[in-house]
Write a protein that binds this DNA or RNA. Structure first.
Lengths: 333, 333
DNA sequence: ATGAAAGCGCTAACAC
DNA sequence: GTGTTAGCGCTTTCAT
């Protein structure tokens, strides 16, 4: 059996209260007994039970992270950066992949709550806001990353998606493209990116379709399929703005299969700047999100929330940056 | 305050024992009271505390997963597949990235233990076996994935790395290559892959270097650097076997920068068959690991371990499969 | 400086 | 069928 606080108390010839005090470095104990207890603890290889201590009202030192899909490189990057920051603060992460499924989101949240996590970071889509509202109302320390929820009073770290969409489109426009398609999944952040896209087109005096076809998954395959379709239209676009790098890669694949050369026949810009953007051929022009910075900042905000610091909540909006690589080029008519 | 079992007992006009029984569906309670209690629970939005229940000897329903790096697509794939299986079994995952650092490995294990996880899955390098030995000795339910530890009696799911290395090299050999370099980080699994590589070369009667230079990180950049070096040797190899897809991509980048065409001037084969292998240009010939299957199987093994089923432990060895794409071609002298 | 004891929310005998 | 009660391992007053 694992040793308990009683075991070390007995061995050390003191009370459990004393042991508890040396564990937590609270109260006043003589150097002598302290040292003695410490020794016994080592000797017994004693590890205090977080479960028991949590029951007495202390923290569990674990925080829940809800993301759409751990296997998506953007989100695994986010998860990793949060994990790192959490680790230095003494916290562990329990990770839940929601697949943008509201039912899963709700179920996972409920599980996390039963486990008394100290806080929750939301990076999932949450088309259904109710679950989030509930969290806030229950005063569960919560922070949101990579998504803004304008109507909610909650700490948020996100990139300016509107600006990102605007940057990507402006870049294409500046290269002389006028027929620019967009590929996106119907998500909040993408709707923002699309607003930026439209804004840029409008400023350039270019008409844009009032309705666009969305993709049903944010992966390479879906991007490829939609791109295939788009590239077969009579009035084939000369550039595609894909709302994430995966979709962009799908577009590149589709182009390649139709023997279109990138960027000569088709320019493609992505979003996220995952590690992979630099590794495709051609290297992908994309809008960078400062992933590490975002992770660190949400975790910091969540900490303040957990520590119950009296303060105003905030929305941190980081600015995206267009990274120009070789998948975009001047349009030669 | 969150409602406790006492609150629902009071509201329902029964004892906490009764409530506990309906929660766990144990003992005998009349349909009537059961229904009543259930109603009250719903009404109060009561969620039993896993922490408290864990303290009384039950499970925490969380399992620890230690991997080298969540941001590495192979491992995030592994993590996702384990998460999925865990979820259907009612478990959550707390994920720890070790960066192949023994100190971190030990520290994380200790943390997980303090949190009373029900079991631990190890996917980390663990060059230092002691930590793992300790786990086994302490009878912590443990399972290992993507790595074999021949000397330990522990459930394991892994791919036959030796065979994988052999397959990759044989493929190159069959294409007429005789000067084949290898790029790897010095890890157990890679040493196996290298054994396969050497075996294949030996069978073909080709001398191989007794010492190879290892790479210090398993990422694109490191692969690129080593490849640059290799490609500048007087006796430049015509093929490179990289021990994972990231390194392979680095090699491709290095070749590209030296204006070598792939596969015309240089053949490259990777390992893992991460999603990205199909997306590079040219698409990467690589050795596939059945990621989803591996995840499901470790989780199943761990479950048996957790349930204390009396049985023999096992080592599941899955066979890798060479996926031929366009990064390899016949050597034209 | 140290210890006794109450209590955290729940489970599991054991009574009734 | 339902309730009483003794823990689970720890923290925290409050005495001493």
């Amino acid at each position: 059996m694992k040793p308990t606080i009683y075991d070390v108390a007995r061995e050390a010839g003191v009370s459990i209260a004393t042991v508890s005090k040396v564990i937590n470095n609270t109260g006043r104990i003589s150097e002598k007994t302290k040292e003695n207890v410490l020794n016994i603890m080592k000797q017994l290889n004693y590890q205090p039970s977080v479960v028991a201590s949590a029951l007495t009202g202390k923290s569990t030192y674990t925080i829940g992270l809800m993301i759409p899909d751990l296997a998506n490189p953007f989100f695994s990057g986010i998860a990793r950066s949060i994990e790192d920051r959490a680790h230095v603060l003494g916290y562990n992460l329990v990770i839940c992949s929601s697949d943008y499924d509201s039912a899963k989101e709700a179920k996972y949240i409920s599980l996390l709550l039963q486990k008394s996590v100290d806080g929750i970071i939301l990076a999932s889509g949450f088309e259904n806001i109710e679950t989030v509202k509930d969290l806030i109302k229950q005063k569960v320390p919560t922070a949101i990353i990579a998504r803004e929820i304008p109507s909610l009073e909650v700490d948020t770290v996100a990139v300016d998606d509107f600006l990102g969409g605007y940057q990507a489109t402006s870049h294409l426009l500046a290269l002389g493209h006028t027929n620019i398609a967009i590929i996106a999944r119907d998500l909040w952040s993408n709707r923002e990116r699309m607003r930026g896209y439209r804004q840029a087109l409008e400023e350039a005096g270019i008409a844009y379709p009032s309705e666009v076809e969305y993709v049903s998954e944010s992966d390479v395959e879906s991007g490829k399929q939609l791109a295939e379709q788009i590239l077969q239209q009579k009035n084939r676009p000369t550039a595609i703005f894909a709302c994430n790098d995966l979709l962009a890669m799908g577009a590149i694949q589709a182009a390649r299969e139709q023997a279109l050369s990138i960027p000569r026949d088709l320019s493609v810009v992505g979003f996220d700047n995952t590690v992979w953007a630099s590794v495709t051929d051609p290297p992908l022009t994309t809008v960078a999100q400062p992933i590490r910075d975002m992770g660190t900042q949400v975790m910091n905000l969540l900490m303040q929330e957990i520590n119950g610091q009296k303060r105003h909540r905030q929305r941190v909006v980081l600015l995206p940056e267009l990274i120009v690589r070789d998948s975009t080029a001047r349009y030669e008519s």
